[in-house]
Structures are given as C-alpha cells and as structure tokens.
Design a protein around this nucleic acid. Structure first.
Lengths: 316, 316
DNA sequence: GCTTGACTTGAACATATGTAACGTTCAATA
DNA sequence: TATTGAACGTTACATATGTTCAAGTCAAGC
C-alpha cells in the first residue's frame, strides 16, 4: 500500500516536497513520515535539511515586526528610501550569510515568473544568488550580471542550480588599462548586457567598505598599497568597484576607467536597486551610498540600522 | 546587556517575530534564544507554537511538486480550470483543516494590501479564514461574506483577529418564507454587500455534499427528512446553500428562494472563484460544481484529485 | 579483477523539543 | 483580607531530532 506511494515518487524533489508538506504543514514526525513513505527516518531528516538549505523550504514570518518596524520607518524617512528591511541583530553571527537569506526572502516574495534580476558583486550578493537559485529556476527567473568578472558569478551559481536563463558580461571586472576597457565597452556583447542589467526588474548590489580586509582588496582588484591613497582622496567605500566619498559623490579616479560594469550614476536613476549590506565596519560606506541615492531599497541588520539613524540624527 | 533587548521588546508580537527569526532563519536552539532574550526555554517553545498556529510563522514549499504537478495539470485540462492546487494525501487526516491551510497559503501568496476577499460558508472556509486572519490584518485585507448567517462567520473570526475591515451580510442564511427573502434582497444594506462580494479580488467557497451528515444538514438549514426528496430531484451537492445536479445545473427549488446569498450563476461569471473541498464523500458534488463552472480555481487533496480525473476519464 | 574515492546508508549516541504536573506570582474581586 | 483564576516558571520525563562514524555501494580508472 504505502510502497506504492514511495514507488510512484519518481524524482527526489517530489519526494522532498511531500516530506516537507507532511512535516511542516501536517506536523507528522520524521518517523511517521518515514513509515508512510518507506524511508529511513534519517533520510527524512536529511531531505528536510537539504530542502531548507536550497530554499525549497522557506519559513516566512508574517509580522510587521519582522524586522524592526521603527528602524525601517526611520531609515525610509531619513534617507528617502523606497523600502527598508531590517533583520534582528545576532552578535557574532555570520552577517553576510544572514543578510543573503533576508535578501533572498525579499526577492522571493517579489519576483514573478519571467522577471529578470541583475546582480552585483560581493559575498552577500553571492549568498543571496545561491539561496535564490532553486526557486528562481522554478519560476523561470533570469539573472544578468552588472559587471565583468565572470568567475565571481559562476562560483555562486554552480551550487545553486540557476537554470539556463543566465547572462554574464563577457569581460573581466577590472582590466589593465583604459584602452582595453574602452574597447570592451564598445562591444555590443558587453553593452547589451549592461543595458539589460539596467532594465532588469531589480538590481541587487552589495556595498563595500574601504580597508585592508575589504573584499575589493582581498579579491585583488585593489592592492593593499592603494588603499591609503584612495582614502586620502576621500573614498569611504564602493559599489560595483566604483568608489565614492562620504557624501555619496563618485570619485573621479583613473581606476574607474578600467572597471567593466554599470555606472553608479545610472543606478541612481532606477528605483529598483536593492542594496544589501550590514556590519558596523561598513557604516560609513553604507551611509555614503544612501546619501548618493545609489539604492532605493536597503536590506541591513538591526545594529547597522541603529547606527545609520544615529548618524543621520547627528548630522541634522 | 541582553536584558535591554528583552526590555526594549514592547509587544508580544515583536518578541515572537524575533524568536521566530532566530529559530527558523538562524538555526539557534530554543535554549540559546531563551538565554539571549532572557526567556524561559518553555516560553520560547510556546511562542513558536503560537506563531505557527496563528499563521505568523508560515512555511512555504517552493517546488513544482508542491502538490502533484501531474494531477494539477490534469485537473486544469479536464475541467477547464484556471488553476488547481493539490495537496498530498494523508489517510485519516483532518481534511478540512489541511485544506484550509492550503487555501490560506494560496491566498497569502496572492492577496495584495488593500485587496478584498469574499468568503462563503462551511468548515473548510472557516478554517481558512482563521488561518488567514493575522496576516490579512497586517496587510489591510478586507473580508466580505457571500451569504447571510452572520454567526457562522463571526465564529471563525473571533479567534483570528481580522481587523476592522470586515463586512457581513446583515441577514440570516435561510429565512422562513420567500416573502421575507424578497424583502431582504431588496434592502440596499444587503444587496450592496452581495455586489461587493462579487467584485472582490477572490471569492472563496466550499462545496457541500448531500447526505445525513453533511454540513447543511448538521447546521440545521436542511432537515434530515429533506435530504431524500432533494436527492430524488437530482441534487448531489451544494455551494452557498444552493443545490445542483450531477451535471452542474442549479436546481429549481423553492428552498433556493429562501436563501440569502449570491447566486451560483453569478459566480460562474467570475474567474476568481476559489473552491476548496476534498474527500471522496464530496466527489460527486465537486465534480458537478466543476462541470457547472461555478469555480475556476480548485484546491483539493491528492485522493480526490485522482478520483476526479478517473471520473472524467470514464465519462469520455 | 582490483583499487580508489565519492557517495549513500544505518546504528548509536548526544541534544533538543514537547508535555504534563505542580508551584509561584500577581492582580482582580468578593 | 482572603480567594480565585490566569499567566508564567520549574522540574522531570518521554520523544523527536541532529550528528557522528563505521560499513556498504557503486562507478571510474588502472
């Protein structure tokens, strides 16, 4: 009797869906599910774990306090944001992992079948892309990169199985000299994709701080020696490898002429730019990015949100 | 330090949201959460339980096999439905509870802030309304009844806290004689609401079977003696207290003239009618309702879906 | 045919969770 | 002031769950 049910289940994923339903909606124990479907209890446990990890199983918290309402309101008001999404603090936690999850949840609620997501660069963004993969594939959601540096994106996408609908800018992120950059930026294969990114349903970007241990440095696009000169020119952080000062003005740097990717000024025109970043180390950078209006939706953590509001208060 | 966090949490609900986040998104144990927030482990456990019960915590399964894809496809094709949603079988389970949950989840994904939901009558629908309450209130979603019988609705809504935006048809469900019905159906207070129900974003209805233990009988709107005569006239089931035969034709009954509520013929015009019903006992009724096109979206369980397809096959 | 390595499986254990019974506190009420 | 009842805390216990590790399976490569 029950064997039939198990046998009829052809794919692993259908099995998972069924198990998840029994577990979370019907409140059966893993043992009961195992009996019913002729599975080992442990297999059930592992299926559930896999489901949670890949995002097939997603827990939504339907509360106006989901983040902290007050903080979200405050950020919206003080920085003129379209939306803000604040997740609870967790001292010592994996910030970028958690923010990635939050961003993935945010996007899952909003992306419709056939939508296109433009993605930037960085640890948090990668984390989001990965969590989103499974669902995005289901819904036929496309992905387009906002900068060069193909390998950066491919990493995050191998684990998640983003389907076929992925478009990567065929270029490095930073090239050796401005001439090569100009050449690439005249290539239709490149410009078409960058235009596509700007037309996407949402643009998802991270914000980087300037420092010896920041991602731009660790990934080798900026050498440690270059940090101090940049700082002297007023740089406090970057988005998509473009640096800005504390007021949110994009700096006029030779370096920028070697970056392949969309311009921040173009992002400022869109109302669908989601910045996901948190941590007090990034405070100045985030604040500057918001002042520059490079993003209209911010996803951050409680501590950072509080600090952002305090900074806004001070400046008044 | 940590006391501050707990103290700053003013409402129970914010606490719940935070606990839920830590538990489901960050994978902390209930003990860890308790320590962090100065709560008893048991209290954490109870909070989570309450959250799940009220729908503040909601688990979504993002899979094309969520229900059974094949069955859903089949139902759509065979019965010309707009959508079908099939939940896995659970022998011996609480069908109406589970279907209610499925319907609530379906609606939660689709209702936008400011939308209006028209609700019919019956155990499954009540269950849905209840699960939906919290979230609906958050999103400012309104509720309007599709029939008289105020008390029927109030029950389900007291537990859930549907906010202020609830409109009930001020009349009994069935009145003593046709004259009173005619009188009531001329009252603007009644007709306005019924029009509103037909204009709602979605109409949610149950399907009833005809029998000694069916809801129409147990609730006293039909006496047990009336069942057999109805059956002889061809009735196989009802929606909103209106009976139809196995082909989905609404019967011409004196009884119908005493019912206060929208007409099935009007529903057939809408493409936003969600019927939620399951169980083999209701098979004939569900099939007839689908043939009559009284609903364009069906939420049912696996076993019933299979039977519906088998019946369609037979008839071909 | 044998070996290797990646992967799955199963059993035993440690931990986490749910439940029930009971005691405390606190505030409303007689 | 005494009393009641609800909410919360505590404990102890039964169950459910996650984790680890050893044994098995399978396919590719020598």
């Amino acid at each position: 009797m029950n064997e039939h049910v198990a046998d009829a289940v052809d794919s692993e994923e259908e099995l998972l869906a069924r198990v998840a339903w029994y577990y979370y909606h019907d409140g059966l124990t893993q043992n009961e599910i195992g009996d019913r479907l002729n599975l080992n209890r442990i297999k059930v446990s592992r299926l559930l774990e896999a489901g949670r990890r890949t995002g097939v199983i997603d827990v939504k918290i339907n509360s106006r306090y989901q983040g902290c309402l007050l903080l979200e309101e405050g950020l919206r008001a003080r920085y003129g944001l379209g939306e803000a999404y604040v997740i609870p603090a967790l001292p010592g936690g994996q910030e970028s992992e958690r923010l990635g999850q939050a961003a993935a949840q945010f996007l899952m609620q909003r992306l419709r079948p056939g939508d296109l997501l433009a993605a930037g660069w960085g640890a948090t963004v990668s984390s989001t892309i990965q969590k989103l993969g499974h669902v995005a594939n289901e819904r036929g959601i496309g992905l387009v990169s906002m900068t060069g540096g193909v390998s950066t994106y491919v990493d995050g996408m191998r684990a998640a199985n983003w389907g076929s609908n992925v478009h990567l800018v065929p270029a490095p992120l930073v090239v050796r000299n401005p001439e090569i950059a100009k050449f690439l930026l005249a290539e239709p294969a490149v410009t078409n994709l960058l235009d596509m990114a700007l037309d996407a349903t949402y643009q998802l970007v991270g914000i980087g701080e300037l420092g010896q241990s920041s991602t731009v440095v660790r990934s080798g696009h900026i050498s440690p020696d270059e940090v101090e000169p940049l700082r002297r020119k007023g740089a406090v952080g970057d988005m998509l490898c473009r640096f800005f000062n504390r007021d949110g003005t994009v700096l006029d740097l030779p370096f920028h002429e070697r970056v392949i990717g969309v311009q921040l000024e173009a992002l400022a025109q869109s109302s669908k730019v989601i910045a996901v970043a948190g941590g007090l180390g990034k405070l100045a950078a985030i604040r500057a990015a918001l002042l520059g209006r490079f993003a209209s939706i911010l996803i951050t953590d409680e501590t950072t949100a509080e600090a952002l509001l305090a900074a806004a208060e001070e400046d008044k």
